[in-house]
Write a protein that binds this DNA or RNA. Structure first.
Lengths: 224, 224
DNA sequence: TAACGTCAGTAACGCCCGTTACAATAATCG
DNA sequence: CGATTATTGTAACGGGCGTTACTGACGTTA
């Protein structure tokens, strides 16, 4: 609704503006906010908690980030680029399909258990159940979850073209299935599952990939 | 009075107690509460919403159910027996492993999309992120999620004994994987996925079951 | 140096939450 | 019929939430 957008580009290094400069590091405060949101979720995280973790007071927070919703969305952006950009790039760039999927799922298991506290994925669980007035934030995260499925689907489409998947494979359903499993891993992680267990699940998920057997087609469709 | 011996146990509308009888059906009110909790989650569901849906006022609710937490737990019990007892029984009693798992996952897809609004599973998402003072409720639901994994594991152990799974199959990981997928289905359902799509994922999940080395392809349909 | 513009800290605002006094009502028991 | 006991509806309680006036403090600009 309001500004708050890109006055932040002149962060702490250059005070070209006139007034009193801020005494805290904006990027560092954002990272602290990310950890609080990650552990607690959007609505259970209170402004008091956030202010304590960020080391600032409410007026400073509102001046720098707008309000709770925009702070959360900015934290989500930071979260995505910091923790998930590399795994997704790996999935897309690794040429061998099974290696790509296996390593992606393993890295996902690592991300989901990276904090000391059990958290799961911020995009999956951050707004899992919220009151109706926070539905705009909920919708924004749902769009991000949809992106995740699209990433899987594109990778499988390429694999299909490359002959790494049997002809007639339902890549859309396959992508949905992996996306579903990935989201389930977040629930597991928040329930305190150890990283090793998530990695075992990640490895087991490779069985979902149909391998083009030389003799018996396992495409699940029967023959024409 | 000859009604003394009559309905001592048919307790729906019999008020053998002394005071003023309640004017609402407790079981029906509980079911209304279940729907509110299912759609909104534990903390976002307000007492005002619950009272409106149940058709009663706060004092009646507190007299009949204790407080919000105990009402929620009772609603969860009602939810489990009403919606999940039959699928779990089916998983345990169907002798053919692939049929058992396939039908269970398909019925799960139906339950998760049974309400008009997108909800997912109440046990998985009901306390997905809550404030610290509701952690007892959160822990109770986590125990229920653990029961779900145990159900899978027991079924797979039996299948291993029966020779429906190859020797050396890691049934614990297999159970965790199916449990993870089941929990992911809840996220999908709450994101508005159609029942048909959840059923496709359910069918695709059968590929996770290792086929005994008898030479039959794992096409997810069983064999004639 | 004097004026100006932005940040910092305290304290408060209005709102909604779960929960409960309170008094009236309606059934059973002696 | 009183006396007792439980339920009902109204209205309120204390507390925590996100958010913001208000007053100084500080650094830049004229």
């Amino acid at each position: 609704m309001r500004q708050h957008t890109k006055d932040a580009m002149t962060a702490i290094t250059s005070h070209r503006s006139k007034g009193r400069p801020r005494t805290f590091d904006r990027a560092q405060a954002l990272h602290s906010a990310l950890e609080v949101f990650w552990k607690r979720g959007y609505e259970p995280a209170t402004m008091g908690e956030l202010c304590s973790a960020m080391g600032i007071n409410p007026p400073s927070l509102y001046a720098a980030f707008g309000n709770k919703a925009s702070l959360f969305m900015e934290a989500v952006e930071h979260y995505e680029t910091t923790y998930w950009a590399a795994p997704w790039r790996l999935l897309g760039e690794e040429p061998n399909l099974r290696v790509a999927v296996g390593r992606f799922m393993t890295e996902a298991a690592a991300v989901l258990t990276s904090l000391d506290a059990p958290c799961g994925c911020m995009v999956v669980l951050g707004t899992a159940n919220v009151s109706p007035e926070a539905q705009d934030v909920h919708d924004a995260l749902r769009a991000l979850r949809e992106v995740s499925r699209t990433n899987f689907r594109k990778r499988f489409e390429r694999a299909l073209d490359a002959g790494d998947l049997p002809l007639g494979t339902d890549v859309a359903t396959l992508a949905s299935t992996f996306n579903t499993l990935l989201q389930g891993l977040s629930v597991q992680a928040r329930d305190g599952a150890a990283r090793a267990e998530l990695e075992r699940i990640a490895e087991a998920s490779l069985a979902l990939l149909p391998h083009d057997g030389s003799g018996a087609p396992a495409d699940g469709r029967g023959r024409p």
